[in-house]
Simulated assay, not measured.
Amino acid sequence: MTSPLLTVTTALRRRAWWHAAATLTALLCAAYLARRHWPALATGAGKLAVADQGWLLVGAAAAGATWACSALAQQGAVAERLPGGRLVAAQFAACAANHVLPAGLGAGAVNLRFLMRCGLPAGRSASGLAVKATAGAVARVALIAVLAMACPGVLRTPHLSATAVAAVLAAAALVTFLLSGPLRLWCRRALAAVLTDIRAVHVRPHRAAALWGGSLGFAAAHSLVLIAVTQAVELPLPPARVALLYLAASCAAALLPTPGGIGSLDAALALALTATGAPAAAAASAVLGYRLLTVWLPLVPGLVVLGVLIRRRAV
């Protein structure tokens, strides 16, 4: 009889091939766009070099807060108490791993190993990650709804043609057809396990507060990084609008499974900023600054921490 863990591992391996192909396609498109708009990127890099250092330090502090918020949300997603120091270190390492592997795989693998090393069974560890991911998605949608009411007219509902609606319905029907037999049974069991863990977490108010507080804080801290960078490069946009644009762009970029959203999030952010009237060079500076603080500066230290955690058998 095939074990559930083996089934999940096989499905993840098959999914990784599709993720790798989509990642390569997205990165090639990003390289093409970068080559086409190289003058704006070069000007943006120069503008970032003379940006306000105080605001960049604020952005760096906000980037550091994202790891603490991620650790808080992960603690809130499980009933067991996790070691605080190792939990924060694992989130730092998971962030670095997420920028190397296709979307979610790196961070998911690191956190899964960490939870299992803390004594949680594989199934409970996987459902704990699912609870955290669900809370994170709900928190982003809630923030978008609040900011959209505060900034009316920024987000516009796209017009969908009858062909697009038919394509979406056909895709939904295909997914429903594919989720049949053993796969549908496995999905039901996985969903039941996640719902059981959500109920167990919300029985303890302090765990629920950690889960939702950490999830909201994680999205808000990432928004604050971009707000600080836009202030540093003197981009004339209100902070609330920048936060709304970031959250909407990050949700759109999640549709392309690139490592850490590299390429997809960059293009979505640049498009969102320029669509609101920001100069192309200033928008490029903001995106480059955001990436510098959230990806390139912490990447090597994060991988070093990951190596240390692996050596000490913490993941």
Rank of each mutant, 00 (worst) to 15 (best):
R184L: 14
H202F: 11
P182R: 10
L143S: 12
A145I: 12
L155Y: 06
P205Y: 06
R156N: 12
L185T: 15
V141Q: 11
L155D: 08
A192F: 04
V154D: 01
A192P: 02
P205L: 12
W186Y: 10
A150I: 07
C151M: 10
L191I: 02
L160C: 12
T163A: 15
R204T: 12
L195Y: 00
A192D: 13
T163G: 10
I198R: 03
V141S: 08
T157C: 09
H159A: 13
H202R: 08
V141C: 11
L155I: 13
H159D: 08
A142H: 04
A142W: 04
K132W: 05
R199G: 04
A190I: 00
H206P: 00
A164W: 12
A167E: 14
A137L: 15
I144N: 03
A193T: 13
S180K: 14
V146A: 15
L179C: 10
A167N: 07
I144K: 00
R156H: 14
P182L: 02
L183H: 07
A139N: 00
A192V: 05
P182I: 00
A135Y: 01
A137E: 03
A172M: 09
R207Q: 03
R188V: 15
M149E: 06
A148P: 06
A166W: 12
I198W: 10
L147V: 11
K132Y: 08
P205M: 07
S161E: 10
L147K: 02
G181M: 02
L143E: 09
A173K: 01
H206C: 02
L174E: 00
A172K: 03
H206I: 02
R207H: 06
D197R: 10
A133M: 13
A167I: 13
F177Y: 12
R156V: 15
A162I: 08
C151G: 02
L185G: 07
A150L: 15
T163S: 14
A200S: 12
H202T: 09
I144G: 04
T134C: 05
W186N: 14
L195N: 02
R140F: 00
A200D: 14
A137S: 04
A166F: 11
V141E: 06
D197E: 11
A135K: 00
A208G: 11
A190W: 11
L191S: 09
T134G: 04
L160T: 12
W186H: 14
D197H: 03
